[in-house]
Design a protein around this nucleic acid. Structure first.
Length: 912
RNA sequence: GGGAGUAUAGCUCAGCGGGAGAGCAUUCGCUUCACACGCGAAGGGUCACUGGUUCAAUCCCAGUUACUCCCA
């Protein structure tokens, strides 16, 4: 006997262990012979991460797809794993060393430090994998991969994959080394990706500075204008005003740009200014980058510290002078008094000095966008000129764009293709080197003259160097590591064994679908597409499903600082994994963010309990599965109806999942299970179970057990735990189960619909609902049993009444049901089908209330009829609308008129 | 500045050209032999606004307003 309520906490762990023990998640488990493969690679979570609500949604959707396809009998692989998160992991271990007051990274040296990080990875990294298990994710954990491999050794397959790709791309001229501006993190002292930079609007200033013209040059600057904007008055100036939001960078200025068409400054192009504080003579150049409308129209150019200035510098052959150290202090390229000052301290000092020297013209307040480190949002990112390794993403992007344009990879929802193209069309060279110790070390060695040798090992590099120099020579390995995403981009094939030609690679690549959030479309999709096409010649996935962002109830992004984070593990603890998953699935409408409300989770927890109790009820009534039960062989309309309804539900759930409309699949299942099976079928079955008709009882029991089986299957992808538990419980009696539910066959129900049975049961439900409704409106005490009189009943209705009398009496709380030609006096009346039904309520009925109730309905019918008449009276409608629409309108009109007549008669019968 | 999205019941959201829906909340009733995490019933909407297309618009198109996100 099942417990009264389902206790997820007591069941989930045990069920999960069982699945693992049975190898239910292993690649190919339960696959039919000759089955086609279905593959999903997990978007690798970060080894330092823990499960947040976005992961919960992402993995719930993957698991729904995986479990569904597994039940279809496909050869399913869900490949799990994590990435090594270069920066985050290194930071965690460094912080840990500090807390333990152990020697820091630089004190212990690279080798020892990396060892420490590995130790951390094995001891405390990857908690998220266990958290995914709590969610019920059915990935093939035996195949878990890590972007750094088992230990990072050169011969580890995951490391070889990265090395091979690097060397190949280098050979193909798609990787190169160059000195360019990068986004520099002065705290971590490494380059970071543009995608790790967040531009934040802050209150800043625009400082206008007077740069004195060299060689005694002067010019006339307009200071007054007529109505047409033509200058009427000039003053003679021996300086040029430039505007800047970052005055400290002036130490690195190597030019001033004005627009070549700007009449104010045209004559100054080719002349020079003397840079204040520094005393450097720098040229005035004409460049369209200078916007005459912005600021003074003249702009200082600091090629080494601004992305736009860098371009201007290249165009005009300006010098690049770096004035910062790697930690963001002023370096030796600046005048001595500023050296060693932090960049913010330097700004203050420089402003003071400029003011003293009369260089500061004026200051205005301005909202400015400042690049910040997107994780901490505290550190200001610095454009910084360094030697880095780059991938020609603009070349790799071409085939990746073609794949989507030509439909070999499609996005669901499709509108995300725009985002993809927008980014791909403007893709910039990808900086792949990072000044870290944790990561794939770049396989490049340098000779004493700076000659580069890219090779798979030190031996190979040494050999190449010997060939080059004609003698053995000492090489120095590149200190840097690769961007974590460089290795993640290989994930769809590196996890399958590449560069070795494994059976898995052959079988499971390309994968089927990538499930991810739109916020990381560039990280994942674009890079995996580029690498997949370059190294496997095939797109890594045919479908990219982009799911929504989970927000809080008010629509705000969840964040720790706002304190509005909903922890999925807490939800699982409180409501169970099934309710948590079902909520996320039910709210995952395409192209729309999810505003997660706890009340929804609670509601779906109730749904889990409801299913549990329905199963419990069946168990109590000996509804056991029957060997050889044939759902199309049912005799009773009730049973013929419910199996048909089950088939409809199965079709809806199936098509919902197939179309990535998870909310539709979930709500179809919910409506069927609660609204049809529990609310009606089970209620209808009760009198049969307690009745004497043994044949009807046997058929209904078997049908109930059959339908419950289908329900468990249909819900399994959404609620794996409770369904598996019930599958086991209901498997204890009757024919033995062929497998656990996780490997059971997805429902294939065809030819079970029966229109006659549907009509009969729909009539029955309408009749019962009508009685209940009238009872409530007439304020009949719930306990009171009424008489029901049918007037004007057809023979079909009489037959139906006869066969369902006990049932109707029970569910509508009736004392008797009779057929008469007259409506008894003092009756409440209603119409179902062709008949008028009366509930004699003498002494109870308030004629006024009853009249009002009926007249309200007449009024509603009048309105409906008028609306339909308006359509039918319109010749345009009759001539242009499709035939079936016209027929439908006519039919609706007829039934409404008929009904109106009956209710009007009922009103008349109430008398005066 | 460029791009995308969203406005439907008190709240959170479905609704894919012909009769406005769900869950939660609200109100009323219920020791109905699975379930109060329940049962039954009810109230509640100018489908943001203005035009257009169409025989017909919550739905398609254009514009307006408000909000959200992405990119600069």
């Amino acid at each position: 006997m099942l417990e009264k309520t389902y206790d997820p906490a007591a069941v989930e762990g045990r069920i999960f262990e069982k699945w693992l023990d049975e190898g239910a998640f292993a690649a190919g488990a339960g696959a039919k012979p000759g089955a086609e493969p279905f593959t999903i690679v997990i978007p690798p979570p970060n080894v330092t991460g823990s499960l947040h609500i976005g992961h919960a949604l992402n993995n719930t959707i993957q698991d729904i797809l995986v479990r569904y396809n597994r039940m279809l009998g496909k050869d399913v692989l869900w490949q799990p794993g994590m990435d090594h998160a270069g920066i985050a992991t290194q930071m965690i271990v460094e912080r840990q060393l500090m807390e333990r007051q152990e020697p820091g990274r630089r004190d212990m040296g690279r080798e020892k430090f990396v060892e420490k990080v590995w130790q951390w990875r094995h001891e405390s990294g990857g908690t998220i994998m266990n958290q995914l298990k709590r969610l019920g994710a059915s990935a093939d954990y035996g195949r878990e991969r890590f972007t750094m491999g088992e230990n990072g050794a050169a011969d580890d397959q995951m490391v070889r994959a990265v090395t091979t790709v690097f060397i190949e791309l280098y050979k193909r001229g798609l990787i190169y080394r160059a000195k360019r501006l990068v986004n520099w993190h002065p705290g971590l002292e490494t380059a970071i990706s543009d995608l790790e930079v967040e531009n934040i609007e802050v209150n800043g200033h625009m400082w206008h500075l007077r740069y004195p013209l060299a060689d005694g040059v002067t010019y006339d600057y307009p200071i007054a204008f007529d109505v047409d904007g033509n200058p009427t008055e000039y003053e003679t100036r021996n300086y040029l005003v430039v505007a800047t939001t970052r005055p400290e960078t002036m130490l690195g200025d190597t030019g001033v740009a004005v627009h070549p068409e700007d009449p104010r400054y045209q004559g100054l192009i080719g002349k020079s200014v003397m840079l204040p504080l520094v005393g450097r003579r720098i040229p005035i150049v004409g460049d369209e980058y200078a916007d005459p409308e912005l600021g003074s129209g003249a702009v200082k150019i600091t090629p080494a510290h601004d992305f736009n200035d860098f371009e201007v510098g290249v165009r005009n052959a300006l010098e690049q002078i770096n004035i910062f150290t790697t930690s963001g202090a002023i370096n030796d390229n600046a005048p001595e008094i500023y050296r060693g000052l932090d960049r913010f301290e330097a700004r203050k000092r420089i402003l003071d000095d400029l003011e003293v020297q009369g260089v500061l013209d004026h200051v205005e307040d301005k909202k400015i966008m400042v690049p910040h480190d997107e994780k901490s949002k505290q550190v200001v990112i610095e454009p910084f000129l360094t030697d880095q390794w780059w991938v020609k993403a603009e070349v790799l992007a071409e085939p990746a764009k073609a794949s989507v344009r030509e439909g070999r990879t499609r996005f669901v929802p499709q509108q995300y293709e725009n985002t993809y193209f927008a980014w791909m069309d403007n893709i910039k060279p990808w900086c792949i080197s990072r000044q870290l110790w944790w990561g794939h070390r770049i396989p490049a060695w340098y000779g004493p003259d700076g000659e580069v040798f890219v090779a798979a090992s030190e031996e190979e590099a040494a050999k190449a160097a010997e060939d080059h120099y004609g003698r053995a020579i000492e090489l120095r390995r590149d200190e840097d590591v690769l961007d974590t995403w460089f290795s993640s981009a290989l994930w769809p094939f590196s996890t399958l064994g590449w560069p070795d030609e494994t059976a898995e690679l052959k079988r499971y690549y390309p994968t089927s679908v990538l499930v991810t959030g739109f916020d990381i479309i560039f990280f994942w999709v674009a890079r995996m597409m580029m690498m997949g096409l370059e190294f496997q010649e095939t797109e890594p996935f045919h479908t990219v499903y982009m799911h929504a962002l989970v927000r809080d109830e008010k629509g705000q992004k969840m964040s720790k600082t706002k304190g509005n984070v909903i922890d999925p593990l807490q939800l699982i603890d409180e409501y169970g994994a099934d309710a948590t998953r079902f909520t996320l699935a039910a709210m995952a409408a395409q192209g729309r963010d999810i505003r997660l409300a706890i009340s929804r989770v609670e509601g779906y927890r109730n749904f889990v309990t409801k299913i549990w109790n329905a199963a419990r009820f069946l168990e109590m009534n000996e509804c056991h599965r029957l060997e050889g039960y044939n759902p199309s062989g049912n005799q009773l309309p009730l049973n013929r109806w419910i199996v048909g309804a089950t088939a409809r539900a199965a079709t809806e759930v199936t098509s919902g999942i197939e179309q990535y409309r998870f909310n539709e699949a979930a709500s179809s299942a919910y409506d069927f299970v609660w609204g049809t099976f529990c609310d009606w079928f089970v209620e209808f079955a009760k009198p049969i179970f307690s009745g004497e008709d043994q044949e009807a009882k046997a058929e209904t029991r078997a049908t109930a057990a059959f339908v419950l089986d289908q329900i468990l299957k249909l819900l399994h992808p959404f609620m794996p735990f409770v369904t598996e538990e019930l599958w086991a419980e209901t498997g204890k009696i009757g024919p033995s189960r062929e497998s656990a539910l996780v490997l059971a066959e997805w429902p294939k129900l065809e030819g079970l619909e029966d229109e006659a049975a549907d009509n009969e049961l729909n009539w029955l439900m309408e009749l019962i609902s009508s009685v209940r409704s009238v009872r409530t409106e007439m304020r009949v005490p719930a306990g009171a049993k009424l008489k029901l009189v049918a007037v004007g009943a057809s023979s079909l209705t009489e037959t139906r009444l006869a066969s369902h009398e006990a049932l109707i009496a029970r569910l509508a709380r009736l004392e008797s049901i009779t057929i008469d030609s007259q409506v008894p006096t003092s009756s409440a009346q209603f119409v179902v089908g062709e008949a008028t039904w009366a509930l004699p309520l003498s002494g109870v009925i308030d004629i006024g209330v009853e009249r009002a109730r009926l007249e309200k309905e007449v009024g509603k019918l009048e309105k409906d009829i008028a609306a339909i008449d308006k359509k039918l009276d319109n010749p345009q409608f009759v001539s242009k609308a499709p035939e079936e629409v016209i027929e439908e309108q006519k039919a609706r009109r007829d039934t409404a008129i008929e009904r109106r007549a009956k209710i009007t008669a009922a009103v008349a019968r109430l008398g005066a």
